[in-house]
């Protein structure tokens, strides 16, 4: 309802960052990753892979918007996609352990 508003404390809220890694040759174009990505940053490639399928790519301009939730990785039946977290705080935490 309250349209055209921006959240006034966005500069204080950080989101984790992820990096999506694709293994296109494994993909069979089921589309689950595109369907399940909560940030909606994935789409089909126009290219075909060796098996003749369109595989997922990141929508142009959305490269920085992966939050590393891991949904794509979890739903992929072919182990063709996975996520690496590049959020700085987590990395340093991991390093400690």
């Amino acid at each position: 309802m309250r349209t055209k508003r921006r959240l006034l404390n966005l500069d204080k809220l950080t989101k984790p960052k992820g990096k999506v890694v694709f293994i296109p040759e494994r993909c069979k174009e089921c589309g689950l990753c595109i369907e399940y990505c909560p940030t909606q940053i994935l789409e089909y490639s126009t290219e075909f892979n060796e098996k003749g399928y369109h595989y997922p790519i990141i929508k142009p301009g959305k490269e920085d918007e992966c939050v590393g939730c891991g949904f794509c990785q979890e739903v992929c039946p072919d182990f063709a996609i996975y996520v690496e977290l590049i959020e700085p705080k987590l990395q340093s935490n991991d390093a400690k352990e």
């Binding site: 989101k15 984790p16 940030t39 959020e87 705080k89």
Partner: peptide, 20 residues
């Protein structure tokens, strides 16, 4: 909350600020 990837309006701030 630091690592939560979702930001939504905070009811307590009357939706003027965000929360996770």
């Amino acid at each position: 909350a630091e690592v939560c990837p979702v930001i939504v309006p905070n009811e307590f701030d009357q939706g003027l600020g965000g929360r996770k």
